[in-house]
């Protein structure tokens, strides 16, 4: 075997092994904007973002709560729209029990003008959102938390020293029809936390819209 064919073999083998050994899915290698983010059990960092009423809101706004249902969502994503009423219902059910909703729009409003702050104000007023709807202009919160899509929920529990992540994922198992839902993940997680137990299902995945990251 001459040198050239040996080199070809090595290159071929390297590529082949790369594809076959799972090395081919280093998602973060080509998507540096969606880092690993937080995991269940991690401390959740505080932040301050502008609400549709112009006031600044952060986790520190909820020091009297037992926790927060943090929802990355937006105006334009049809999956977010499908879940809008269910997010309102979550707030109406759980705010009085100590788990209000905080909705965060993480999208770049240059890419999606429909998610602009003024459009958020319009939507919040049309739908009479009973919870804050804040804009993550620098996308730093979405990046820190590791939000990947809308809607993407993080249920946070207030502890003596801060906040911990107790659930990450979908609202429920049926985006198309709320009445046919069999598992209400967020509701179950919050109910477990209200009983001082850990959520049985702590992470789930769901179909959703990609977060529109700033270009460049």
């Amino acid at each position: 075997m001459n040198c050239t064919s040996l080199r070809t073999l090595v290159v071929t083998l390297t590529l082949f092994l790369g594809f076959s050994s799972g090395m081919v899915s280093p998602l973060h290698a080509q998507n540096p904007l969606a880092p690993d983010g937080l995991k269940v059990g991690d401390q959740a960092p505080d932040f301050t973002l502008k609400n549709v009423d112009g006031k600044l809101v952060g986790l520190r706004s909820f020091v009297d709560s037992k926790g927060v249902i943090l929802v990355f969502t937006c105006n334009h994503c049809p999956y977010s729209v499908k879940y809008e009423d269910r997010i309102i219902e979550l707030h109406n059910t759980f705010a009085t029990k100590g788990f209000p909703v905080l909705a965060v729009n993480p999208n770049d409003t240059v890419i999606v003008p429909e998610d602009a702050f003024t459009k958020m104000q319009e939507r919040a007023s049309e739908k009479k959102f009973p919870f804050p709807y804040v804009i993550d202009e620098t996308q730093i919160v979405a990046k820190k938390y590791g939000a990947r899509r809308t809607p993407h929920v993080f249920v946070l529990l207030r502890t003596r020293t801060g906040w911990t992540v107790e659930y990450i994922g979908a609202i429920d198992d049926n985006p198309d029809d709320a009445s046919k839902t069999e598992s209400k993940f967020v509701e179950d997680a919050v109910n477990a936390l209200l009983k001082n137990t850990k959520p049985e299902t702590a992470t789930t995945k769901a179909i959703g819209c990609t977060i529109k990251w700033k270009k460049g």
Partner: peptide, 20 residues
């Protein structure tokens, strides 16, 4: 397929569920 939380991982464990 219904119940995306069950099938997304079967397509690929690194998939968050966002499309495309």
């Amino acid at each position: 397929e219904q119940k995306p939380h069950l099938w997304i991982d079967k397509v690929d464990s690194t998939w968050s569920g966002a499309i495309p």
